[in-house]
Amino acid sequence: MKYVYELHKTMIANNLILVYEGEFTQDITKSILAMAERNMDAIGELGGVKRKVFSVMVECLQNIVKHSEELNEKDEDGLKNNAIFMLGKQINEYIVTSGNPIRNAAIPSVQAKIERVNSLDKDGLKDLYKEIIKNTEISDKGGAGLGFVDMARKSGEKLGYSFEPINDEYSFFALKIIVPRSE
């Protein structure tokens, strides 16, 4: 049972106030959002910071829900659509992190989207947002293709990401978004 204490210590050492691992659905998204919101209300977090964290969390969680559906067929590794979501709170910032399996074939397009967003400044992101919203259609998965742009705009910092190989077909996509605790 030592792992319970170890996990507890890890969470405290990393200032993690919320960790969820498992299957992601819209209902679970709502529960995670409600917990984070209650936590931020309890410490009297600034309204503007709270709304930014909430927005970034929504985009991050709904990305996982939408894109995990295509991995629904459970493979022998028990991969399925399990993912992880974490919210950390430091003195000066909130850190939203997520990790989920994605098909290796999807890596180049995801990477290109994030790199494009990371290459732009505030005005560049605003222009990209307008360009996408004017030309996009809601996909079959229900997305508008605006998630990364919006996360970067709410954050004001570069999106952090990595792809860790799992096997020939899948990698683990980790995403980190920082939200400063000042308005």
């Binding site: 909430f54 929504v58 709904q62 919203i133 809601i138 997305g143 508008a144 605006l146 742009v149 919006d150």
Partner: peptide
């Protein structure tokens, strides 16, 4: 509106 996700922003448009 208090919050809207990016998919909603498209349909609001």
């Amino acid at each position: 509106l208090e919050y809207f996700n990016t998919a909603s922003s498209k349909v609001i448009l």
